[in-house]
Simulated assay, not measured.
Amino acid sequence: MKFRRPFLVVICCSVSTGLSAAFFLSSNTDDGSLTAHVDDREFTYPEIIGDRYGLWTTDGMINNAPALYVLSRDSYYYTLKADAHGAYIDCAYADGRNPMNGAGVLAGMCDLDEKIVEDFQSIAQDYSNKWKDSVFGFNTRPMLDHNTGAEFLLGRIGKIEVYDQYPSVDALFGAKPEKYIKTGSGCYYFKQELAFLVYKKAQPDKPVYLDVIRSHDPFLLDRLTEAKLTKMAVRKCR
């Protein structure tokens, strides 16, 4: 998933119930500082924006709410929340590739409540490394040996099985899996739609929903819970 580097300086939006009704970000590209404006207060976070540690960090929006993008060979996205104490990280998403088996890695961790600090970029990177060794660490060698497609079970959201399917070796080389879900009633195929397999910090090994990318510009995610996925998975499985 590729994004051009935004040159936006000030971003305004409203946020969901339970958070401050007036929350927007402004960034200073000269000193790399990020400022969260929450109601009538300002909270400044130094050395956040710009090129740091070989990564490009910029402020942006996800679902019309303030967010941070960290772009490099792999890409990382952070949704933010705010209250009377300032802004903090809610979810961290990773969009990359496992160099060991070629698999695409799309996953997220939510309910983080992490502070925005200079090295916050490591949050999604650390989770991504763990997912590359576990959820997305499956053996793709038989695909290469036999020049064929394959599918891999990523996990279960309740009773729903979530798979990444590579129709061909070319799809693996491009790290472009096609996600689908399966229940006792049938399947649903997302085809070319990208979907993050999302976890919560309290149960880091148990996926709880899929966040499907509905649009890149603007960046919109559609959260699919177990109940929603169950209603979708009624088609005949291939």
Rank of each mutant, 00 (worst) to 15 (best):
S75G: 06
Y77D: 11
Y78R: 09
T79G: 04
L80V: 08
K81M: 15
A82R: 06
D83M: 15
H85V: 13
G86W: 10
A87E: 02
Y88R: 06
I89A: 09
I89S: 03
D90H: 12
D90C: 05
C91E: 02
A92C: 07
A92E: 05
A92K: 11
A94S: 14
A94M: 11
D95R: 03
R97T: 11
N98C: 01
M100P: 05
N101V: 01
N101M: 00
G102K: 10
A103S: 01
A103C: 04
G104N: 03
G104K: 07
G108V: 01
G108Y: 00
C110K: 02
C110M: 01
D111Q: 13
D111E: 14
K115R: 15
E118L: 11
D119H: 09
D119L: 08
F120L: 09
S122M: 11
A124E: 07
D126M: 06
S128W: 08
N129L: 12
N129I: 04
K130P: 02
K132M: 14
D133Q: 08
F136H: 03
T140Q: 02
R141C: 08
M143L: 07
L144S: 04
L144F: 13
T148V: 03
F152C: 04
L153I: 13
L153C: 15
L153S: 02
L154N: 12
R156T: 14
R156G: 07
I157R: 07
I157V: 07
G158A: 08
G158P: 01
I160L: 02
D164I: 06
Q165Y: 13
Y166V: 08
P167K: 02
P167S: 11
S168W: 09
S168K: 06
S168V: 01
V169G: 12
D170K: 11
D170P: 05
A171M: 10
P177T: 03
E178M: 12
K179F: 10
K179D: 05
I181K: 09
K182I: 00
G186H: 04
C187P: 07
F190Y: 15
F190T: 07
Q192I: 10
E193R: 11
E193L: 14
E193Y: 10
E193M: 13
F196T: 03
L197H: 07
V198F: 05
Y199E: 04
Y199F: 08
K200Q: 12
